[in-house]
Design a protein around this nucleic acid. Structure first.
Length: 431
RNA sequence: GUGAGCGUAGCUCAGCUGGUUAGAGCACCGGUCUGUGGAACCGGGGGUCGUGGGUUCAAGUCCCAUCGCUCACCCCA
């Protein structure tokens, strides 16, 4: 036997007793269920798509210059027929694929969907960055209207606030229409081209491939050059249509009272974004790490071989949100305690305890003891579990056909027959 | 891929300039308490001190290598 096997670095077990707050199951559940409540309450429909797709879904979706593709950060594998499959590195492309596949274009538009689940990227682990992480994702498809962008941002912010998060910063920008970006990239190439050798190695490649990405490089060399050259921001290159769209999103947000700051240089890692782009930041996660982000992707459907379908949506990183919640001292609501803790005093009582518990469980939350113990131990166990009632079955009870039931708070104790027990737990007051 | 820090019980850690049989707290199980309240006291299980090699009469401790983990860069959620 070799060493005991462990989880792959960058993956995490989510369990109640996890020592790190972001991986505690109640924290996860709190985030996901709150998001679900907010989004359902806004009329969005829950969907689940597979966690893997044909590679092309993501390859075409994210674009060939995206780091996800360039740096091989997708988990790619072959099926038996040799077709390439990939674990999803983001949910949007899969949802658009599903929209097209199920003919949702004939549904009333917009179609508003949300999902949540694991996302996979082949990156090396560090705080807030994992190979498998989780996202809550919302998409509004089939209608190109700044109202949907504003609604998406408002919903996203409301999820954070409902969870109890403060200190949010919403950065809003626009990446323009494709032709605007062509002009902007051309401008940047001409600006940076002559200085290419002053740039970092990564950014030198970007001059031709994706010059917009130079702007959010964290390399000191790059930032020094950027400070010196003072490139004009993307926002200055918006065409009239994109410009008007952006202004409307801002107006709507003002009207909704959603706070944001315009970031003229906001860019996106994924190529399919157009116009609206935003990120939500939180001081706790680290200098440049986003809690979540969103944007408009009107060209994505066609890249996937579908009809033109405009769309806007966002992704919320569950683990990063959990880190932010921890730093703000927000705790998930406590899990309910058992109404009844039922335990055996001897071997023969074990099955009676289970049988009785199974009869009561449709009505109340019953936990049982699995090993016969002394009444003292059973009481201790019941108290540790925070139970409201404790019940014993032993020799005496068996002889009389009863169980001994004790209310832990008042100390009141009675011997009850099964029928009496059922009627006791019939009323709503015991829950 | 690059750099830094850290590896002793399930968890948190102590273990001095190398020196008997490797410790504490928490958790778990049991006893004191023979069928009744979280306490207290006592006891128990659980470790090849990450792994391999070296120095030494003697290595958890010093040296080398290796593996693992964490953080940071890159990028993003």
């Amino acid at each position: 036997m070799g060493p005991m096997l462990k989880a792959v670095p960058g993956t995490n077990d989510i369990l109640a007793q996890a020592k790190e707050y972001p991986f505690r199951e109640p924290v996860f559940r709190y985030i996901v269920s709150t998001a679900e409540e907010v989004l359902r309450g806004a009329g969005a429909q829950m969907v689940y798509t597979p966690i893997f797709e044909y590679l092309e879904v993501f390859q075409k979706g994210v674009g060939l210059t995206s780091d996800i593709v360039v740096k091989k950060e997708m988990f790619v594998f072959e099926d038996r027929g040799g077709r390439l499959l990939a674990l999803r590195p983001e949910p949007t492309a899969a949802i658009v694929r599903a929209y097209n596949e199920h003919g949702m274009k004939v549904w009333p538009q917009p179609v508003r969907l949300f999902t949540w689940g694991p996302i996979f990227r082949g990156e090396r682990q560090q705080k807030g960055r994992y190979k498998q992480f989780h996202q809550v994702d919302y998409e509004a498809l089939g209608l190109s209207d700044p109202l949907l962008d504003a609604e998406a941002i408002a919903l996203m912010v409301r999820i954070y606030k409902t969870l109890g998060l403060k200190n949010l910063e919403v950065k809003l920008g626009s990446v323009g229409d494709p032709e605007d970006r062509v002009r902007y990239n051309q401008y940047l190439r001409e600006l940076f081209g002559p200085y290419a050798r002053d740039l970092s190695e990564d950014s030198r490649v970007r001059v031709e491939a994706n010059p917009m990405r130079i702007l959010d490089s964290k390399s000191e060399r790059d930032q020094a050059l950027i400070a010196e050259l003072q490139p004009k921001p993307m926002l200055a290159f918006l065409g009239p249509a994109a410009q008007k769209f952006h202004e409307q999103v801002c107006n709507y947000l003002d009207r909704l009272g959603v706070a944001y700051t315009v970031d003229p240089n906001l860019v996106r890692g994924l190529d399919y974004y157009v116009r609206t782009a935003w990120e939500v930041h939180h001081a706790g996660i680290g200098a440049k790490s986003a809690l979540g982000g969103g944007g408009r992707y009107d060209g994505l459907s066609e890249m996937l071989g579908g009809p033109p379908v405009p769309g806007v949506g966002f992704g919320i990183g569950v683990e990063r949100l959990a880190i932010a919640l921890e730093q703000e001292g927000v705790a998930p609501p406590a899990d309910p305690c058992p109404t009844l803790y039922l335990a055996p005093l001897d071997e023969a009582a074990k099955i009676e305890v289970l049988a009785l518990a199974e009869q009561l469980r449709p009505k109340i939350y019953v936990e049982i003891g699995y090993t016969p113990k002394s009444p003292r131990k059973i009481l201790e166990d019941a108290l540790k579990k925070g139970a409201r009632y404790v019940g014993f079955i032993g020799e005496t009870e068996r002889a009389r056909g009863v169980i001994t039931l004790k209310h832990l708070e008042t100390g009141e104790q009675r011997a009850l027959e099964p029928l009496q027990l059922h009627s006791l737990f019939e009323g709503p007051e015991v829950k």
